[in-house]
Write a protein that binds this DNA or RNA. Structure first.
Lengths: 262, 262
DNA sequence: AACAGTCCGTTTGTCGGACAGTTTCGAAAA
DNA sequence: TTTTCGAAACTGTCCGACAAACGGACTGTT
């Protein structure tokens, strides 16, 4: 019976308008990255709102990574970096209770592509970083093999570091961005697997092989090795009898039980 | 002369502590999704800080997607959704001036994988949505072919919609999350290409083929067709003589010139 | 019984002012 | 020219206040 559909009336609060206004200035380049943000009082005056309101708007900018605050100094305009976004992405994935299957399948797509790309684009600096990472890991493994208490924390961090260096020097920031939140979610799982199966040497060997492929700029082989490396991870996961389709948050918190057998 | 190195003392501002505290409550499940956030005054009292401080903390939560505000109602706990994250990710990519090459290479990895996964997981609802999308696009194309003024806006939105439905029903939320920011960045480029080359029919045909593969649950073929579809996009991009390695923001703003030939 | 109107306590959005602790920056001193 | 020092500017936090909007209860009308 209604003749006309009214579109929803929306009235954004002032602090959000402040956010939008400043965001626009940044995106359009009028406020340049690295510049300090204008003083709160000054902004309040320009926008014709109270300083408290401006401050709330700035908090939005802060969380979205467009403004960076260091101590009590003047906040500065900044580029949101991968890591900021990645951590919120990881959190979102956990809250949506993604499964290990989803995570692994995505990695199965991303990691080999990154390895392949890295073989084409990596430079001497990247290779040097990888080399350091591998050496550190070798030291770790030797300690473990000598019977030392296994410090899986450090090992897993090195493992993650290896893959991150690859992403960093892979010459593709889109892939790197997509990759980042996934790696951080693998950490708790990696810890569990390593503690139970002690596959340190096997991981290290895989990294070595990949490193050699990169050094030889052999993209196809790099992809293959990475593929194998990731598949190893899946097999290890299955061996630990963790649930393939269980939501991940349980694993993250270390409260996962063995998968119900059938 | 110093005997002990003190680690840098860091004093997070109170509003950030408020943010951290509430975030923890949400992640640990004490505050459940959908619940309204406690009143500001109440929080201020509990934390022992001023209401203004609490408000600033809530702004951080708001921007990170953990709190959703609808009109003047009580803000509610919510799950950060893909789209929120995706838009900040897109913005970050633009600000980092990623190139079309990076974008396309990433899509070349993600889209076929998503198509393959969708062939396995999509249900009747997903197929129905795809069908609607294709029909709408068919109507569009027929109008264009009848000589109507080309409304590339709607067409490009439909194109994007097709790929998003695939991601949504692909059964892998990690891939979907990674995919999202990329598609939105393709929009301006897609507009330019379509306007110049008028490849409407070709895009529609590709979508039809992919749809049929999904209906037949033929994952391998779905991947192949998507691969071809994306490669078409690259060829079209080259035909328009847009710069392959130019940062993307120029394209987004529509101020890109033809690539300098050599 | 369904619905419009009214009233009220609660909560958010915004404002103004205030003050302590830092940082910034230019002037004075070495 | 470089260093030192002090005032000005700025941020973080607090307090108090008020309008507008919401949620809900209660009432009267149809």
């Amino acid at each position: 019976m209604q003749e006309h559909e009214f579109s929803r009336i929306e009235r954004a609060p002032a602090y959000r308008l402040v956010y939008d206004a400043i965001e626009r200035e940044i995106l359009s380049g009028k406020l340049r990255v690295g510049d300090p943000l204008p003083a709160e009082l000054q902004l309040a005056e320009q926008f014709g709102v109270n300083r408290s309101t401006v401050r709330e708007g700035i908090r939005l900018l802060e969380q979205s990574g467009l403004v960076e605050r260091d101590g009590g100094k003047r906040p500065r305009i900044s580029l949101p970096h991968y890591l900021d976004l990645a951590s919120s992405a990881s959190r979102a994935l956990i809250l949506h209770s993604v499964t290990f299957r989803e995570l692994w399948e995505a990695s199965m797509v991303l990691e080999p592509a990154i390895a392949e790309s890295a073989a084409r684009h990596i430079d001497v600096n990247g290779l040097a970083e990888l080399n350091n990472n591998i050496n550190a890991m070798e030291a770790n493994v030797q300690r473990f093999e000598a019977g030392a208490e296994a410090n899986t924390d450090e090992f897993v961090q090195l493992d993650r570091g290896f893959h991150e260096i690859l992403a960093k020097f892979g010459g593709n920031r889109v892939l790197a961005l997509a990759h980042e939140p996934v790696t951080s979610l693998f950490i708790p799982t990696g810890q569990i697997i390593l503690q139970r199966l002690k596959t340190y040497r096997r991981v290290l060997d895989a990294h070595r092989h990949i490193y050699n492929c990169l050094k030889d700029k052999d993209a196809a082989k790099a992809r293959t090795w990475m593929h194998r490396h990731m598949d190893d991870f899946r097999r290890a996961y299955e061996l630990t009898e963790l649930a393939w389709d269980a939501p991940l948050d349980a694993v993250s918190l270390g409260i996962t039980q063995a998968a119900p057998h059938r």
